[in-house]
């Protein structure tokens, strides 16, 4: 502790000054480089998808779900067959209504994509059909 007199604009003041450890005061301040502790962060990854690849559930094939041919009229959505407007052997014109499907509380009318003769109707009214199922075959 040192007692000092300081004069400011002719007025003197007595001040007490405490000398701290010399080395601390005098030593040039060399700031040690601040190195952030290396944070070893574990990589965060998405959980592995179950070993077996997720495949589309195999829907039991609808009865007589023959591969569709060029003249086949397919169901545009899954639903229930309400009625057929044609029978096997009928001649149909392009754009003629051939069936009615009920799905989502609505009837969807199904039209022939091409003209020809109805060769097969693989499903019956009341049957459930999947999207893409053959409703009427036209040749």
């Amino acid at each position: 502790m040192k007692k000092l007199r300081v004069t400011v604009e002719g007025k003197s003041y007595e001040v007490l000054v405490e000398m701290l450890d010399d080395s601390q005061v005098a030593a040039p301040v060399v700031s040690a480089p601040v190195v952030a502790a290396p944070v070893v962060s574990a990589p965060v990854v998405s959980a592995p998808v179950v070993s077996a690849p997720v495949v589309a559930p195999v829907v039991a094939p609808a009865p007589k779900a023959a591969p569709s041919g060029p003249g086949d009229v397919l169901s545009p959505l899954a639903g229930k067959v309400v009625s057929f407007e044609v029978k096997v052997g009928d001649k149909v014109t392009e754009g003629q209504q051939v069936a009615t499907i009920e799905a989502m509380k609505m009837n969807t009318y199904i039209y022939a994509a091409s003209a020809g003769t109805v060769t097969a109707i693989p499903v019956a009214p009341g049957d459930g059909v999947n999207e893409g199922a053959v409703l009427v075959s036209i040749a």
């Binding site: 545009p76 959505l77 639903g79 799905a103 989502m104 509380k105 609505m106 009837n107 969807t108 009318y109």
Partner: peptide, 8 residues
């Protein structure tokens, strides 16, 4: 368009 796919 309710005439196609029930308008879904």
């Amino acid at each position: 368009q309710p005439a196609v796919k029930a308008g879904t």
